[in-house]
Design a protein around this nucleic acid. Sequence first.
DNA 1: CGGGACAACTTTTTT
DNA 2: AGTTGTCCCG
Length: 827
Amino acid sequence: MNENYEQERGERLPPPSATGLLEGLNPEQREAVLHDEGPLLILAGAGSGKTRVITHRIAYLIRVRGVSPWAILAITFTNKAAAEMKSRIADLVGPVTQSMWIGTFHSMFVRILRRHPVETGYSKSFAIIDTDDQRALVREIMRDLNIDEKLFAVNAVHGAISRAKNRMQSPAAYRSQAGSDFRRRQIAEVYLRYQERLRANDTMDFDDILVETVRLFEGHPEVLAAWQARFRYILVDEYQDTNLAQYRAVNLLAALHRNICVVGDDDQSIYSFRGADIRNILEFEHDYRQTKVIKLERNYRSTGTILAAANAVIAHNGSRKEKNLWTEAGEGEQITFVRAADHFAETRFIAAEIDRYVRDHAGNSWRDVAVLYRVNALSRSIELGLRERGIPYRVYGGLRFYDRREIKDVLAYLRLIQNPGDDLSLARVINVPKRQIGLVTQEAVRSLGQREGLTMLEVCRQAAYFPELRRSAGKLAGFAALIDRLRLDLAASSHTLLEFVEHVLDKSGLMDEILNAKEKNREDSIDRVQNLRELVSDAGEFEDNFTLVGEPEEGATLEVVMAEDGGETLAIRLPEAAETAAEAVDTVAPVIDLATLLEGFLERATLYSAQDLTDENDDHVRLMTIHAAKGLEFPLVFLACVEEGVFPARQSMTSAESLEEERRLAYVAITRAMQRLYITTARTRMLYGYQQEQPVSMFVDEIPKEYLREIGGPAAGVGPAVFGAAGAGAAPRRRTGGEGRTPGFGVSPVSFLERRGAAAPGRATPVRRAVEPDAYRVGGRVSHPIFGRGVIVSVEALAGDVILELDFGGRTKTLLASQANLTLLGN
DNA sequence: CGGGACAACTTTTTT
DNA sequence: AGTTGTCCCG
């Protein structure tokens, strides 16, 4: 959506001409487009026209320099970004774009890996598991090893394994590095088995896709050489978010031609939790001598005020490349900072403002608006007000479509049908719907399989021959027969993909089970049926958009790429045996049958998130995390729940590095806004099941006052709450009246900031004091839950916080105002 | 073996 | 608060 706006502003370029590619570009942008050969680092600040530069550069390479699109590799982080880039390049150079490799690290590397089954040791149709399945597998292994899940959280173990992989550390290396550390030794054990299980199952997780690619390149020079030769120009977007494996793979690929162009912004590095290493971009110049560095600092997106605020916040970070965004746009409006009484008031306020923005101004639409927040869990509290007012909205992220249970069940069936060796999928569905095959039996099947070196499906088939399985033999054989039947149907290729998915839903009994759900689950089952229907039509859409791209060359070989409109999907049928690596790179026999379609469909289901599949043109307000908003822009942005502990997240406040990353996140958030930005907070919020007092985020304090206009009065505790006197209650549908309206676009009436009528009762929570230096005076009296009543001896403001020296009846304590649970006592 | 009641934990962010 | 996992009983 970000770039749509640019296009709508009429910047889509006129038809091909070399010079046309430079029109409307500023000098730095031109320089980047025209850069010839050799390493290029583009430091692209937020809203500096980055995508435009990349697309024009690629178009320039193709049209002016005559580079074959086939020799260009462009890597992005999300499928959506890839689709966007592809379509914009297509606008510039036409359909030849389709033979260009544009995609995410994961999808491009899968494509490569599938072509080298011999070298990787995986088959060409290895399965890919998502995060959920990874966790499930880790949990299972931990149970096998009798590791207490209370001592070792599954998430933490999984995280440690994932990070080890991203550091390119093998299980053995991890173990030897663990030394005598019990915890790490245990993790090493899980890691080892985890990897074995994946291998045995011909399955990769997200991390393996990257790691195995590096291993393929490093272990097979001839393979690497072939790909190096092919990709004369490599372009990596969001380079600041690459991790070690991605870094290595890219640099290996680029080593021959050294035409590597990386684009990024160290201030927007927000993925260190998944191994991204900001040093990759900071040290690019070091890695490549004679790197051409171009800084894009002119911002075309936001008002001067918004930019100034963003610059001020990010300036608090230490390690960064100095840059300063500027704009020729006017100052624009002040940023509105809102201190609402509680999350209800907050969401109502947001809803009212959105309502006014759209309904009172012709030409504004819902889709101009985004509400951003730190964590997905907050989306629900924000939805409230929007729903109340009937504002159309959509929550992005969160539970992805493909993560829904019923969807995963169907996909597991499809995976198992496609690959009978997929024990993980088998385990998921063997008793779904209920077939009276319990955990004991399942476990027996699994261990027999391991002992005999058979797939679990094979064990089921042969159940009658295993005395241990006698009791359930019939059921197991029945299940095997079902799968085998479906496999034959797949091989017969007599269905369309859509029909086949329906067929599986029917024969597996999944649909029946849901339809027969008990009365009380009625609503739920309607939802689930709808989801399944959606999956079926998704399959239909997938095959409809599936087109054969590229022309067969003389001599029989041809690359078959199934390009799906917008995004890109790869279902590639390989020649039976490619003789040489180079041949595997270049030659692919075109065979499109049902199995191939299914393979592509399944891969997309894992590699594509819900966001990639949503319709950009729908007219609704967008609710999403800041992470999800990266790369997007909106005329009107609400940054919600900007409270200490939420944003910055409490977990991030322990180290300087993670706090800096949070600040970069704040920077990303602020710079999404084009014309108007609201920062909203609630004084109290329900978190972890408790009503908590919420201090204002430190990031708000880092924005110079002159850019802010505050609604909601000073923080609670300093005086009587400014709002909340008039008993407005829940006043749902009241339209924002004229009061308080300023010309243009004013502040909404106070009523939306009121605490809901009856919310007050209940015991008064001790006030966790915000960073409000003025509230503390020497001699002032406070109460502390442990130390009791005390007197302030000294006050020292420091870095947005306040250090207090307190005298509790003779005992002197030094406390941080933001940390200590102090209540100010009046007089 | 399946279902229901109860307990515990959650909170970073995603390919 | 809400969900997810565990335990116990039929």
